[in-house]
Amino acid sequence: MFDILIPGLILGGFALISSTGLYIASKKFYVYEDPRIAEVTEMLPGANCGGCGFAGCAAYAEYVVHENSLKKPCPVADDETMSQIGALLGLAADSGVKKVASLMCKGTSENCKSVMEYKGIEDCWAAMLVADTSKACAFSCLGLSSCVRACSFDAMRIEDGIVVIDDEKCTGCGMCISACPKNLLHMRPKAKIITVTCLNTDRGADARKACAVACIGCGKCEKVCEDDAIHVNNFLAKIDYDKCTLCEKCVEACPTNSIEIREVTIDA
């Protein structure tokens, strides 16, 4: 009878001592944490993408609560979430302009021919160690998925040798930007825009030879633009989104179809 009680008593004694210890420790070493931090973390998208510049959603929540400001909005969360967070903290939510990533290249395997057979590791940086490009154009998208792997939101895929971005899924966190060794991914406002889809700064003839839809720097778009929004520098046209009034004249004027209207189906 006692045989069974002894271990029971010993273990019970241990439990009592340990729980007392834990209780004292929890009182003595208590650190106050604002309960709102946990609440805000709960509301955030929770992808830990790092698009805000902090280590993750929890770190961002801590920043928001401590600074008591929403001046740096989460680039991923939608307006509703941000206003909910604002309501919790008693702040006006500053939603900011929503952005999406966009690829400055249309060098599909049809437009821009491959000049070699790359059989190494499937990673753009790894391919760049072997040669600057595997396509005829030195500025083109290699289509080896480095950005696709960097995307936490499943918004990118490789199609026809280049990256295709799903504007619906893209949250604008910007993690793909630094994953591209060619600097081909740029953030653009999530709205209808007109953009030059090329970064080739070679002379016109060379660019044309390399890719069927390259910007050859002819300057026609510059001439037809009435808003002074488009300029050709170093054989490459660039559009100032702030000045552009979406008149679409440049799109018609471009002889190589390297200016494109990009529309977004916004769910808002």
């Binding site: 190494g120 590791i121 940086w125």
Partner: peptide, 15 residues
């Protein structure tokens, strides 16, 4: 492709 991976690793560290 071990040496290619190692080269990629060196590139990653430099970046």
């Amino acid at each position: 492709r071990l040496v290619h991976w190692m080269r990629l690793g060196k590139n990653l560290i430099r970046r």
